[in-house]
């Protein structure tokens, strides 16, 4: 089963939930897909034994074959290509802006003259490792690069479906989040009982409903703020999987880089319950589908 942990708002506790859930289960593979700022390794402290470049295919022009027809520019959905036609005074040129390129391949596929080939451009790194018996993979986008989805997809190529896969997703509701949660059997949305938490939770719920991924909510720092998140979940028939209190011991443990289940093993039961909740809901969603 693939469980992703996401949230509309940043800083609600995705990594805390993902890490502690992973440590409370057996036969787990952990993927940190927040490749713009991966931090699960700070808590899990895995032994890294493998490294691989993360790449994006970008176009390269064969000047000998190109006649500056402009087809590549026309089909580029990301406006990453400019074609300056040849004139009496000078040769034409094709300008590629790799930072805008999403690596979709349209230009190379549709060039009428076969003048474009794709070359891999390094945009990040994938690291694999182990924490006790837990398998660990994370990706890291290079500083200055903008396209994180290709790195996220390359992290996800390591998914081993014989294991319980926990995906720590990036925050928000845009492309990187879609890339991270896509293909999950269940998604845990972490939120907090504040107006910001609620606003961004609603956005995330809309995304998951569109993607048809079953989901439930974890309310972190559940005893601060107001009851509007709970009211919303009740109204929308969204299961609340777990509530975590606003406690100093949790914050202290976090600040030391120690998962709370390692400091206070009684939390293991709570995260085990979270898993049982998820499993039940996932099975329910499946039988719903079959009907």
């Amino acid at each position: 089963m693939i469980i992703s942990v996401a949230s509309g708002k940043g800083g609600t506790g995705k990594t805390t939930i993902a890490v502690n859930l992973a440590l409370s289960l057996q036969n787990v593979q952990f993927l940190d897909c927040d490749v713009e700022e991966p931090n699960a390794h700070i808590f899990l402290k895995p032994k890294i034994y493998g490294q691989k470049k993360a790449v994006i295919p970008v176009p390269e022009i064969d000047q000998a074959k190109c006649n500056y027809c402009g087809k590549c520019r026309e089909v580029c959905a990301y406006h990453a290509i400019a074609v300056v036609p040849a004139s009496v005074e000078k040769k034409g040129s094709v300008l590629i802006f790799p930072h805008l390129c999403h690596g979709c391949g349209a230009c190379s596929q549709l060039c009428p003259f076969g003048a474009i080939r794709e070359v891999d451009k390094e945009i990040g790194i994938i690291e694999t490792g182990e924490k006790d018996s837990m398998w660990f993979v994370h990706g890291r986008l290079n500083v200055g690069e903008a396209m994180s989805p290709p790195v996220i997809r390359q992290v996800k190529q390591y998914i081993n479906s014989s294991k319980t896969v926990i995906i720590d997703a990036p925050p928000g509701t845009s492309c990187p989040v879609i890339a991270a949660v896509k293909g999950s059997d269940f998604c845990v949305l972490v939120t907090e009982p504040t107006p910001f938490g609620l606003n961004d939770l609603i956005l995330a719920v809309e995304v998951l409903r569109k993607m048809a991924i079953p989901f439930g909510v974890v309310i972190n720092r559940a005893d601060i703020g107001d009851a509007k998140v709970e009211d919303y979940c009740e109204k929308e028939n969204i299961p609340i999987l777990m509530k975590i209190p606003f406690k100093k011991e949790i914050a202290v443990s976090y600040s030391e880089g120690i998962p709370i289940v390692e400091k206070d093993p009684s939390y293991r039961d709570k995260f085990n319950n979270l898993y049982l909740n998820i499993n039940g809901l996932k099975n329910e969603a499946n039988s719903h589908h079959k009907r």
Partner: peptide, 15 residues
């Protein structure tokens, strides 16, 4: 455009 406005405006002006 979200991105590439300058590039495509340059293209337009050049054309």
């Amino acid at each position: 455009f979200q991105g590439g406005a300058g590039i495509q405006s340059g293209q337009l002006v050049a054309s």
